[in-house]
Simulated assay, not measured.
Amino acid sequence: MSTTQTPLPPVVDADAWRRELDALRVREKAATRELDAIAAQRRRLPMVELPEYTLEGPEGPVRLADVFDGHSQLIVYNHMWSDGNEWQCPGCTGFTSQFTRLDVIERYYDARFVIVTNGPIEEALAYRTKVGNTMAWYSSAGSPFGADMDAGPGEGFGVNVFLRDGDTVYRTWHTNGRGTERLSYLQGLVDLLPYGRQEEWEDSPEGWPQHPTYAQGMGSKEVAALYGEGHDHA
Protein backbone atom coordinates (compact mmCIF):
# COMPACT_ATOMS: atom_id res chain seq x y z
CA MET A 1 0.00 0.00 0.00
CA SER A 2 1.30 3.44 -0.93
CA THR A 3 2.32 5.68 1.95
CA THR A 4 2.45 8.87 -0.14
CA GLN A 5 -0.12 10.96 -1.98
CA THR A 6 2.35 11.51 -4.82
CA PRO A 7 1.56 9.29 -7.82
CA LEU A 8 3.86 6.30 -8.29
CA PRO A 9 5.01 4.42 -11.40
CA PRO A 10 3.06 1.25 -12.19
CA VAL A 11 4.11 -1.86 -10.29
CA VAL A 12 4.81 -4.93 -12.45
CA ASP A 13 6.57 -8.25 -12.02
CA ALA A 14 10.33 -8.55 -12.58
CA ASP A 15 10.01 -10.02 -16.08
CA ALA A 16 7.74 -7.21 -17.28
CA TRP A 17 10.07 -4.62 -15.74
CA ARG A 18 13.06 -6.21 -17.49
CA ARG A 19 11.29 -6.08 -20.86
CA GLU A 20 10.50 -2.39 -20.43
CA LEU A 21 14.08 -1.68 -19.31
CA ASP A 22 15.51 -3.58 -22.29
CA ALA A 23 13.32 -1.58 -24.67
CA LEU A 24 14.52 1.68 -23.13
CA ARG A 25 18.12 0.47 -23.23
CA VAL A 26 17.94 0.22 -27.03
CA ARG A 27 17.18 3.96 -27.21
CA GLU A 28 19.78 4.80 -24.56
CA LYS A 29 22.53 2.95 -26.44
CA ALA A 30 21.47 4.54 -29.73
CA ALA A 31 21.75 7.96 -28.08
CA THR A 32 25.21 7.07 -26.75
CA ARG A 33 26.40 6.08 -30.21
CA GLU A 34 24.94 9.28 -31.67
CA LEU A 35 26.75 11.36 -29.05
CA ASP A 36 29.97 9.51 -29.93
CA ALA A 37 29.43 10.40 -33.58
CA ILE A 38 28.74 14.03 -32.68
CA ALA A 39 31.96 14.18 -30.65
CA ALA A 40 33.85 12.72 -33.60
CA GLN A 41 32.43 15.44 -35.86
CA ARG A 42 33.29 18.07 -33.26
CA ARG A 43 36.92 16.93 -33.31
CA ARG A 44 36.94 17.54 -37.06
CA LEU A 45 35.52 21.07 -36.93
CA PRO A 46 37.58 23.84 -38.49
CA MET A 47 38.51 26.80 -36.29
CA VAL A 48 38.79 30.57 -36.57
CA GLU A 49 41.77 32.69 -35.55
CA LEU A 50 40.98 35.35 -32.96
CA PRO A 51 42.43 38.81 -32.46
CA GLU A 52 44.29 39.48 -29.23
CA TYR A 53 41.89 40.08 -26.32
CA THR A 54 42.76 41.49 -22.92
CA LEU A 55 40.63 40.43 -19.97
CA GLU A 56 40.75 41.46 -16.34
CA GLY A 57 41.83 38.91 -13.74
CA PRO A 58 42.43 39.00 -9.99
CA GLU A 59 45.92 40.38 -10.58
CA GLY A 60 44.94 42.86 -13.30
CA PRO A 61 44.90 42.80 -17.11
CA VAL A 62 45.69 39.46 -18.75
CA ARG A 63 45.85 38.42 -22.38
CA LEU A 64 43.47 35.68 -23.47
CA ALA A 65 46.51 33.65 -24.54
CA ASP A 66 47.78 33.81 -20.96
CA VAL A 67 44.45 32.68 -19.49
CA PHE A 68 45.43 29.23 -20.84
CA ASP A 69 48.10 29.23 -18.09
CA GLY A 70 50.48 27.28 -20.32
CA HIS A 71 47.91 24.76 -21.56
CA SER A 72 46.99 24.34 -25.21
CA GLN A 73 43.21 24.11 -24.72
CA LEU A 74 40.72 26.29 -22.86
CA ILE A 75 37.03 26.00 -21.98
CA VAL A 76 35.31 29.27 -21.07
CA TYR A 77 31.92 29.44 -19.41
CA ASN A 78 30.46 32.87 -20.18
CA HIS A 79 28.49 33.61 -16.99
CA MET A 80 25.39 35.82 -17.28
CA TRP A 81 25.75 39.03 -15.30
CA SER A 82 23.75 42.07 -14.17
CA ASP A 83 25.93 44.77 -12.64
CA GLY A 84 25.11 45.49 -9.01
CA ASN A 85 22.72 42.58 -8.47
CA GLU A 86 22.99 40.72 -5.19
CA TRP A 87 22.23 37.39 -6.90
CA GLN A 88 23.33 36.53 -10.39
CA CYS A 89 21.84 34.01 -12.82
CA PRO A 90 20.67 30.93 -10.85
CA GLY A 91 21.33 28.60 -13.77
CA CYS A 92 24.90 29.84 -14.24
CA THR A 93 25.56 29.84 -10.49
CA GLY A 94 24.24 26.33 -10.02
CA PHE A 95 25.94 24.95 -13.11
CA THR A 96 29.41 26.29 -12.36
CA SER A 97 29.26 25.37 -8.66
CA GLN A 98 29.63 21.70 -9.66
CA PHE A 99 33.18 22.02 -11.04
CA THR A 100 35.50 21.66 -8.07
CA ARG A 101 38.30 19.29 -9.14
CA LEU A 102 39.57 20.94 -12.29
CA ASP A 103 43.16 19.85 -11.64
CA VAL A 104 42.24 16.60 -13.42
CA ILE A 105 41.50 18.30 -16.75
CA GLU A 106 44.59 20.49 -16.34
CA ARG A 107 46.98 17.70 -15.45
CA TYR A 108 45.82 14.96 -17.79
CA TYR A 109 44.11 16.72 -20.71
CA ASP A 110 46.28 19.82 -21.22
CA ALA A 111 43.26 22.08 -20.75
CA ARG A 112 41.87 24.71 -18.41
CA PHE A 113 38.24 25.57 -17.55
CA VAL A 114 37.47 29.13 -16.39
CA ILE A 115 34.59 31.59 -16.02
CA VAL A 116 34.42 34.87 -17.92
CA THR A 117 31.70 37.39 -17.12
CA ASN A 118 30.85 40.83 -18.45
CA GLY A 119 30.65 42.16 -14.90
CA PRO A 120 33.33 44.27 -13.18
CA ILE A 121 36.11 42.08 -11.83
CA GLU A 122 35.67 43.31 -8.25
CA GLU A 123 31.98 42.36 -8.27
CA ALA A 124 32.71 39.07 -10.00
CA LEU A 125 35.34 38.01 -7.45
CA ALA A 126 33.13 39.05 -4.54
CA TYR A 127 30.26 36.99 -5.94
CA ARG A 128 32.63 34.06 -6.48
CA THR A 129 33.44 34.12 -2.77
CA LYS A 130 29.81 34.67 -1.77
CA VAL A 131 28.61 31.51 -3.52
CA GLY A 132 31.74 29.46 -2.78
CA ASN A 133 32.75 28.99 -6.42
CA THR A 134 36.23 27.48 -6.85
CA MET A 135 36.87 28.20 -10.55
CA ALA A 136 39.12 30.97 -11.87
CA TRP A 137 37.10 34.07 -12.83
CA TYR A 138 37.90 36.79 -15.37
CA SER A 139 36.07 39.89 -16.54
CA SER A 140 35.49 41.01 -20.12
CA ALA A 141 33.84 44.27 -19.00
CA GLY A 142 36.44 46.37 -20.84
CA SER A 143 36.70 44.09 -23.85
CA PRO A 144 34.51 43.05 -26.81
CA PHE A 145 35.36 39.44 -25.97
CA GLY A 146 31.95 38.59 -24.45
CA ALA A 147 29.98 40.03 -27.34
CA ASP A 148 32.29 38.47 -29.93
CA MET A 149 31.80 35.07 -28.25
CA ASP A 150 27.98 35.35 -28.51
CA ALA A 151 27.59 36.15 -24.80
CA GLY A 152 27.64 39.92 -24.59
CA PRO A 153 25.82 42.03 -21.97
CA GLY A 154 22.15 41.03 -21.92
CA GLU A 155 22.72 38.15 -24.36
CA GLY A 156 22.79 35.24 -21.94
CA PHE A 157 25.37 32.57 -21.21
CA GLY A 158 27.54 30.41 -23.42
CA VAL A 159 30.28 27.81 -23.53
CA ASN A 160 33.27 28.48 -25.78
CA VAL A 161 36.31 26.31 -26.47
CA PHE A 162 39.69 27.56 -27.67
CA LEU A 163 42.98 26.14 -28.89
CA ARG A 164 46.30 27.96 -28.45
CA ASP A 165 49.33 27.71 -30.73
CA GLY A 166 52.00 29.89 -29.17
CA ASP A 167 50.40 33.30 -28.70
CA THR A 168 47.74 32.69 -31.34
CA VAL A 169 44.30 31.66 -30.08
CA TYR A 170 41.64 29.91 -32.15
CA ARG A 171 37.95 29.45 -31.41
CA THR A 172 36.97 25.82 -31.99
CA TRP A 173 33.42 25.36 -30.57
CA HIS A 174 30.49 27.21 -29.04
CA THR A 175 27.05 26.45 -27.66
CA ASN A 176 24.36 28.02 -25.50
CA GLY A 177 20.80 27.34 -24.37
CA ARG A 178 19.44 23.85 -23.79
CA GLY A 179 21.94 21.04 -23.97
CA THR A 180 24.66 22.63 -21.88
CA GLU A 181 23.30 20.71 -18.89
CA ARG A 182 24.75 17.59 -20.51
CA LEU A 183 28.11 18.92 -19.28
CA SER A 184 26.76 18.82 -15.72
CA TYR A 185 26.79 15.79 -13.45
CA LEU A 186 23.80 17.03 -11.42
CA GLN A 187 21.17 16.98 -14.17
CA GLY A 188 22.59 13.72 -15.50
CA LEU A 189 22.02 12.05 -12.15
CA VAL A 190 18.63 13.67 -11.52
CA ASP A 191 17.41 12.59 -14.97
CA LEU A 192 17.81 8.97 -13.77
CA LEU A 193 15.33 9.47 -10.93
CA PRO A 194 11.69 8.40 -11.30
CA TYR A 195 10.47 11.99 -10.85
CA GLY A 196 13.26 13.56 -12.95
CA ARG A 197 14.08 17.25 -12.53
CA GLN A 198 10.46 17.99 -11.54
CA GLU A 199 10.43 21.06 -13.78
CA GLU A 200 7.19 22.01 -15.50
CA TRP A 201 8.58 21.84 -19.04
CA GLU A 202 9.36 18.12 -18.68
CA ASP A 203 7.15 15.47 -20.29
CA SER A 204 6.09 13.56 -17.16
CA PRO A 205 3.08 11.41 -16.30
CA GLU A 206 -0.05 13.11 -14.99
CA GLY A 207 0.30 14.15 -11.36
CA TRP A 208 4.11 13.93 -11.22
CA PRO A 209 5.60 16.64 -8.94
CA GLN A 210 6.62 19.65 -11.02
CA HIS A 211 7.62 23.27 -10.39
CA PRO A 212 8.89 26.24 -12.43
CA THR A 213 12.51 26.05 -13.54
CA TYR A 214 14.85 27.37 -10.81
CA ALA A 215 12.00 27.42 -8.27
CA GLN A 216 13.91 24.90 -6.20
CA GLY A 217 17.26 23.18 -6.28
CA MET A 218 20.63 24.69 -7.12
CA GLY A 219 19.75 28.37 -7.45
CA SER A 220 22.02 31.22 -6.39
CA LYS A 221 20.86 31.46 -2.78
CA GLU A 222 20.88 27.69 -2.37
CA VAL A 223 24.43 27.45 -3.70
CA ALA A 224 25.58 30.22 -1.35
CA ALA A 225 23.92 28.49 1.60
CA LEU A 226 25.71 25.22 0.80
CA TYR A 227 29.12 26.45 -0.29
CA GLY A 228 29.47 30.20 0.32
CA GLU A 229 31.80 32.02 2.66
CA GLY A 230 31.01 31.53 6.32
CA HIS A 231 29.03 28.32 5.89
CA ASP A 232 29.97 24.95 7.32
CA HIS A 233 31.02 22.73 4.42
CA ALA A 234 31.92 19.69 6.51
Results as ranks from 00 to 15, higher is better:
Arg18Gly: 07
Leu21Ala: 13
Leu21Val: 15
Ala23Tyr: 07
Asp36Thr: 05
Asp36Tyr: 05
Ile38Trp: 15
Pro58Gln: 09
Glu59Pro: 08
Leu64Ile: 06
Ala65Pro: 06
Asp69Phe: 04
Gly70Met: 11
Gly70Ala: 08
Ile75Thr: 09
Tyr77Phe: 11
Gln88Trp: 03
Cys89Gln: 08
Pro90Ala: 01
Pro90Thr: 02
Thr93Val: 04
Gly94Phe: 13
Phe95Ala: 03
Phe95Ile: 01
Gln98Thr: 03
Gln98Glu: 14
Gln98Trp: 03
Phe99Leu: 04
Phe99Pro: 08
Asp103Glu: 12
Glu106Ser: 13
Asp110Gln: 03
Ala111Trp: 04
Val116Tyr: 04
Asn118Phe: 07
Glu122Val: 14
Leu125Thr: 05
Thr129Pro: 06
Gly132Met: 10
Asn133Ser: 06
Tyr138Cys: 00
Ala141Gln: 15
Ser143Trp: 10
Pro144Gly: 05
Gly146Cys: 03
Met149Thr: 04
Gly152Thr: 06
Pro153Arg: 08
Val159Arg: 00
Phe162Thr: 06
Arg164Leu: 10
Asp165Ile: 14
Gly166Tyr: 09
Val169Lys: 08
Arg171His: 13
Gly179Met: 01
Ser184Gly: 11
Tyr185Leu: 08
Gln187Ser: 13
Leu189Pro: 03
Pro194His: 02
Tyr195Pro: 00
Gly196Glu: 10
Arg197Thr: 00
Arg197His: 12
Gln198Tyr: 00
Glu200Cys: 10
Glu202Trp: 02
Pro205His: 01
Pro205Met: 03
Pro209Glu: 01
Gln210Glu: 12
Tyr214Leu: 07
Tyr214Thr: 02
Lys221Tyr: 11
Lys221Gln: 13
Tyr227Asn: 13
Glu229Trp: 11
